[in-house]
Simulated scan of single mutants.
Amino acid sequence: MKALTASEMREVDRLTTERHGISGTQLMENAGTAVAEVVRQQISLRFQSPARRVFVLCGKGNNGGDGLVAARHLRQEIRQTVVLLFGSPEDLRDDRASYFQRWRDAGGETLLIRNNAEWVVAFSRIAGADVVVDALLGTGLRGPATGLIAKAISEINSLSRNARAPIPALIVAVDIPSGLPSDGQQAEGPVLYAHTTVTFTAPKIGQLLSVDAQSCGNLIVRAIGSPAKLVDELGKETIRWSGPDEFAELPLIRCADSHKGLYGHVLVVAGSAGKSGAAVLAGVGALKAGAGLVTIAAPDSVQGIVAAHQSEYMTEPLPTLADGS
């Protein structure tokens, strides 16, 4: 799957509506629904007991609109789902205003974050969260995160130790971690670290190549209605993400009359005295990847050790040098 820049992604969204009649409102609904589904899946994988407290941090842009949709769906199962809106309801426009009203009409709790005092109160509650959903800033970000949002990003990173602490147990970023530039450049300000990022339609360049790409955690790409052919048509970069679709057309069942000589021969040159494990693991990896033949060339001093680990691969001795290599 091709990776897209922010401008390419905007064009995909525009043509999805223009050519295929899928409105921006529907795309936002689909995106938020996808986030809620992933959050529920991750909870089932990570939690030994049901999640009780979910906080959805929403900005004023479309990313925040996705978060409002996700919050509405999550609240159906997790009643203590709370939206933190960074700004005033009056700042919301179009679909974001509509989805915020639906959230309020459904009885959802909202904390407004308009100044530092309100953030301090809200952060004291986030400290006890099971799940945090980051919908503050999306792919349209220009420049660094600033103001209260930058403060929130930094303090959540401190709380979660860059998503390495046990609490919050799950941090999910909507489309892209807040503060991470979409096009691969280094972030100029703080970037929120997530355990999982749910991105829409296609991965973004910055999620794969940026020095801050590790902030995404586990990257999940979800289709929300845009045809895959638009990604292929508009994506100009050569960077691809190796998702399951990349391998869908590979034959996974081998013919009954085939043999190992039909499936490639891998030569692994690895290992040294006291470090035979690298050669063993590389050889096992080649076998598991499907290679019909695997030969490991290793120093003669460790050849026997390497050969004893896996009967399927072959070995060739190399002279052992004075340093053991």
Rank of each mutant, 00 (worst) to 15 (best):
A3V: 10
T5A: 00
E8C: 02
R14F: 09
G21I: 05
S23Y: 08
N30V: 11
G32M: 06
I43N: 04
R46M: 14
P50C: 00
V54F: 06
G64I: 11
L92Q: 04
L92D: 08
A97L: 06
Y99M: 13
F100Q: 04
R102Y: 09
G107W: 14
T110M: 07
L111H: 02
L111E: 00
V120P: 00
R125Q: 11
G140V: 12
L141C: 02
P144E: 14
P144S: 15
L148N: 07
I156L: 15
I156R: 10
N162E: 01
N162M: 04
R164K: 08
P166D: 00
V172H: 00
S178H: 03
G179W: 04
L180I: 10
D183N: 04
E188P: 00
P190T: 06
T199W: 11
T201A: 05
L208R: 08
S210G: 10
A213C: 09
Q214C: 12
S215T: 13
G217V: 10
L219A: 01
V221R: 02
V221Q: 07
G225F: 02
S226M: 07
V231F: 08
L234K: 08
L234A: 08
K236Q: 13
K236A: 14
R240W: 00
P244Q: 01
E249F: 13
P251Y: 01
C255N: 11
A256V: 10
S258I: 07
H259W: 07
K260V: 14
G264T: 09
V269S: 09
G271K: 01
S276L: 08
A278C: 14
A282W: 05
V284M: 03
G285M: 03
K288A: 07
G292F: 12
S301G: 05
E312H: 15
M314R: 09
A322P: 03
D323P: 12
